[in-house]
Each structure stands twice: as structure tokens, then as C-alpha cells.
Design a protein around this nucleic acid. Structure first.
Lengths: 333, 333
DNA sequence: TTGTAAGCGTTATCAC
DNA sequence: GTGATAACGCTTACAA
């Protein structure tokens, strides 16, 4: 079988206690000589403490569970990348849970993660229920971060993106360009963040005293095809501009517009939200609201690890800024 | 603390052996009555065998390690989705390793996965060395699947995509349309699959007796920006068509073309490879070689789990077909 | 039909 | 300075 602590002990001629202590940096009390002997023996044998035996007593797994709705959406894969990069640097690994927005699957995964006693959770899901989070995590003092979902009432650390503000700025940009009939595509699900962008739109339209016709407001699944379907309808309505509350949706709009021969931005101004890498590669390049997705992932991981290391510290809120990135898909009316 | 097997035993009034046997489906020898008692007690207490204690003796983790170069590339995220969907159905979870094409990181991850004794590996990486795979996996009889890298000499199960054929078909399509000066963008790294597509290109060009100028052949990193850089140069050369060996690369070509005012497909025919979802959303929609990425991921997971369950069976090769999808980015010269 | 006891590989406590 | 030994929670020969 593989090398155990016994082998190292035998080879060095000391007890396993000694080996364990020294290898875990708790061996100040041993002589310099013994310490050296143990270290070199361990190295020579290429000894690695058995992961499971170790965890059985320490209860630590150096693992973070990440639950997201759709890995295929570059929004989430960018986020995961940020998470993973930070965790890698800090010796943690991620157990990936792609819930496909399926509540049952989400619950199952959450239970699995608890069962496998991951050290912390990053959850970017709007469908997961508060009860679930309370029962499984809060109650048992498991560190977690909720992303892509703003809930002031949660007493955990929060990464907050001011989506209402972002939605406002996007809408205002179109208004400034002279647009009055502005359509919007938002999420049909209970996605809090995306919903807030829509709230920002409404607020802005109201502030400027503009009309919002019911047929200008589309609710769809957050995907390219969702955006495509919504845009097909919007292009029948009398809108001169569209605010797509995610870049994925915006991509669908490009397709719908090109199919019916509507030119962006000449005949239709389009603004997205997220600023995924692809945005600047569309033709014309997409005007959008930038949010630092990769950094958000990184920040989430960082905050979580900090919480794990310092369980007693008070929860902190991190505010993330968005900004308007003007490219070529919007134009004065 | 949490519920252990002892609690269940105590509550039922039997020994822990009895409980363990029954709960693991090895309790035929016990009376129907005892079995029922144990089951209901376990349910009532919501008992779950401790993951680590269990693994310490069974050595099984119900976990698959997946190493990929870039989760941000929808090619890989699609693949992961396929993998994950299958594993979810079968009670496995995935430990995600995003190597960012960094060899050191890859090796570290591979070691970590071995250390955490995952039940199997899916590795989609061209930079990982054969020695590494041999030393860590082959030698220790760890089941693994190599993806996105064809190596006949490997004695593991193989998922083979005939990329040479695909590259040939792509090139032939352009030739059939009347193109003679055909540029190609391929990978600058040692990516075997992508390289084979390039091989297919060369083969086809030779078969048709066409010239291949050195300046028509671009080697770049497999990303949108890579495609963009390559296309900027190619557009200076006298090519009427470009074969981008991945859709990611092709997206970069769209941008470069639009920047210098070259119209696709009127002035430039473009064909990609992969058929990611986005391909049909580009304008004009991208002609490309379809390979069923999601299914490949699923098949890989399926094959791996089968191997884990049947370690003695002979290795199998699975051949995956590609097909040409003609959309609107290519046109007769 | 059921239970005893050994063993998995660690870490942690405490005695020497 | 060092090392027995218990404990973690489970599975599995082997007894009874």
C-alpha cells in the first residue's frame, strides 16, 4: 500500500507522535536533530498524510463547495475562474455543483456538500430557499457566501453589486441619446440581481417621465435564445432601443435583429449588462454595463476563506461598482 | 455532535455491525423485523454515514477529478456540463481543476487529486506530460480518460474525435466554393486535437494540389483574442477564405474583419470548428464543423464510471463523428 | 440470527 | 525531549 506515518516513524526510529507533531509544525519541543531526521525521511519516502484519516480527526477538507445555475453561461464560468484562481493559491479545491436552476438538484447538492463537510460554500443561485440555507448552513455555523442575489437580511458576509444603479445608468444612457421608446428584456425567474436591473430601468423611466408600455417589457429565460425570442417580439413593437439585462440576452437580440434586417445601431440601439469578454467581439461591439465578474468571484473566495480563518469576526459587506462601457451598439436617435 | 452509527444502534437496541450491514444492503441474514427497525431508526435520526470514516475503510470517494485548461472557454464548459450531468445522475461529484494551461498547476492538481483519492480522472489537457500520467495514474491503476487529445498508444479507454477528417471536410468545403487562397489559424501550443484539424487542412490542400503559403498559416493561442490577432495579419495576405480551427478563434476573426471593413462572407469566407452555441448567433451565423461537445463530456463520464465499476474489462475506444454545418459565413468566390 | 473486535491512518492528550 | 494511548466513525472477518 502507500506510505503511512508508521513508515516514516520506523525509518526515523521515533514514534508516530513525534512524526506527526514535527510534520505539522508543532514540534518545537523536539531536538533539531530529530526534526531534521523526520523531515528528510518523510521527503525521501514521499510521505503524504492520508487525506481521509487526517480529515476524520481535524474535520477540515480544504474544499469549497460552489453551486451555480449554469456553467455554460460565461458569466458564471468567469466567476468560477475567479473563485478557483484564489482558492488554488490558498490550497483549496472546489467541488462543482451545476444546478441547472433545478431546485431539487440544488437541494441535493447542498446536502451532499454538507455531508462531505466542505469548509465553506459559495452559492450563486436564486432558487435555493432561505430555509434550506438556514437549516443546513446558518444553524450549523457553516461559512457561506451568497452571490448574485442581494439580501440585506442575511447575516453572512455579502458581496453586493448595485444592480439597481446599473440598470438606471444603462437606461439613462439610452435616454441621453434621445431614445424615448425603450424596451427591456429581463428574467422570467426570481433572479434578484437581474430583477434589480429592471427596477433601475423603471426608476429611471419614471424619473424622466417616460412611458412604459406593457409590450415593451419582456420576461424570458436568461440565455441567448431567451434574448432572441424576446427581441423578435420587441422588434414588432415601436421601440428604438433595447436594454437587455444581461449580455447573454443581448446576443440573442443581435440575431433577431439581423434576421429581420434591422441594423444595430442605426435602427436599433442596444445595451447589455455584465460586459462578458464576448461583448467587445460582437459586431457592432456591445455597449454594456461592466461588472467585474472575475473579481467578484475572487473576492467571494477571499472573503470566504477569511471567514473560515476568522469565524468570530463580524460579517462584512463588500460593495462592487459597475460602470458604463460605451461601444458601438448604441447611437443618438 | 452529529448522528453516528452508534446512535442508530443504541436506538434500535442492536450492535453497530448489524446497523452497518443492513444499511449497506448486506443484511439479508438479519430478520425482517430487525431490518425494518434499523431502517426506520436511521431515517428518524436522519443518519448519514460519515463520509470520511466511510472512505477510510472503503477507499471510495464518489468523486471524479476533472482537469481542463480553461473553464471560460465555452468548449470546455459545455463539456463539463455533459460530464457533470451524467455524474450527478450517478451519485458522483466533480472536483474542478482549471489549469489555465499552466503545467506546474496541472501537475499540482493531478497530485492533489491522487492525494484525495478520487475514483477517476477526466483530463482534457494537452500540456500534461505522459510521464505524469503514467507515474501517477497508470502505474497505480487509477481509471482515467484523456480527452481532447488523441493518443493511440494509450491503453486507457479513448474518446476519439476524428479531427483530421473534420479539418479536411472544412477545407474541402471552402475549396468546393471556389476558394484557392485559404488561410488557416491553428494553435501555437501542443494541442493534439487542434493540431489534427490543421493536419486535415494540409492534407486536403495537397490532395487538391493547392498552394500553401507560409504567411497563410497562423499559430495563436486558442482564444478570441488569438483569432483576432491572427486575422489581422491574414487580412493583409491575399486570402479569400479562412479556416479557424476553433470557433473561439473564429469569433476573433469577425472582429478583425469588421474593424477593417471586410464583409463576411462577401469579401471573406470563414469557417470555424466546434459549433458552440454562439456560432449560430454570430452575424452572419458561422459555418462550422459540429462536434457534439456536451455528448462527448457525457460519454467520457459514462465510460469512466463503467471502467470504475468494471476494472477488468478491456479498454474500449469510442469514435465520435463530426459534421459540416453550413450557415452564412461562407460563400462561393 | 446477531455481536465482538480488529483495523483504517491520523491527531491530541497526557504521562514519563 | 519523547512516546503510549485514546479517539475519530466506519466496515468486515470471525465468533457465538
Amino acid at each position: 500500500m502507500s506510505i503511512t506515518i508508521k513508515d516514516v516513524a520506523k525509518k526515523t526510529g521515533v514514534s508516530i507522535t513525534t512524526v506527526s507533531q514535527i510534520l505539522n509544525g508543532k514540534g518545537q519541543r523536539f531536538s533539531e536533530k530529530t526534526r531534521e531526521k523526520v523531515w528528510s525521511a518523510a521527503e525521501e519516502l514521499n510521505y503524504k498524510a492520508n487525506y481521509f484519516a487526517q480529515n476524520m480527526v481535524t474535520k477540515q477538507t480544504q474544499t469549497i463547495g460552489v453551486i451555480i445555475p449554469d456553467i455554460t453561461n460565461t458569466f458564471y464560468s468567469d466567476m468560477i475562474k475567479g473563485i478557483e484562481d484564489y482558492l488554488y493559491e490558498n490550497g483549496f479545491m472546489v467541488l462543482l455543483c451545476n444546478s441547472t436552476d433545478n431546485e431539487e438538484r440544488e437541494n441535493l447538492y447542498l446536502n451532499q456538500l454538507v455531508h462531505r463537510s466542505v469548509d465553506g460554500f459559495i452559492i450563486a443561485s436564486s432558487t435555493i430557499s432561505d430555509e434550506m440555507i438556514f437549516d443546513l448552513l446558518k444553524k450549523n455555523d457553516k461559512p457561506y457566501i451568497l452571490l448574485d442575489r442581494k439580501r440585506e437580511e442575511h447575516e453572512s458576509d455579502n458581496i453586493i453589486v448595485d444592480d439597481t444603479e446599473g440598470g438606471y445608468v444603462a437606461t439613462e444612457h439610452l435616454i441621453t441619446l434621445g431614445h424615448r421608446n425603450i424596451g427591456v428584456i429581463t428574467s422570467s425567474s426570481s433572479d434578484v440581481n437581474v430583477h434589480n436591473r429592471f427596477v433601475g430601468y423603471k426608476k429611471c423611466m419614471e424619473d424622466y417621465g417616460l412611458l412604459m408600455k406593457e409590450e415593451w417589457i419582456m420576461r424570458e429565460t436568461l440565455s441567448m435564445s431567451g434574448g432572441y425570442e424576446a427581441a423578435k417580439k420587441l422588434l414588432q413593437a415601436d421601440v428604438s432601443a433595447i436594454f437587455a439585462t444581461s449580455d447573454q440576452l443581448a446576443i440573442g437580440v443581435y440575431r433577431a435583429a439581423s434576421e429581420v434586417g434591422v441594423c444595430i445601431p442605426e435602427q436599433l440601439s442596444l445595451i447589455g449588462y455584465d460586459d462578458i469578454e464576448l461583448a467587445s467581439y460582437m459586431s457592432p461591439p456591445l455597449t454594456t454595463i461592466h461588472q467585474p465578474i472575475y473579481e467578484i468571484g475572487k473576492l467571494a473566495a477571499e472573503t470566504l476563506i477569511h471567514r473560515i480563518m476568522n469565524p468570530e469576526e463580524a460579517a462584512k459587506n463588500h460593495l462592487v461598482k459597475t460602470r458604463l462601457v460605451v461601444r458601438s451598439s448604441t447611437k443618438v436617435l
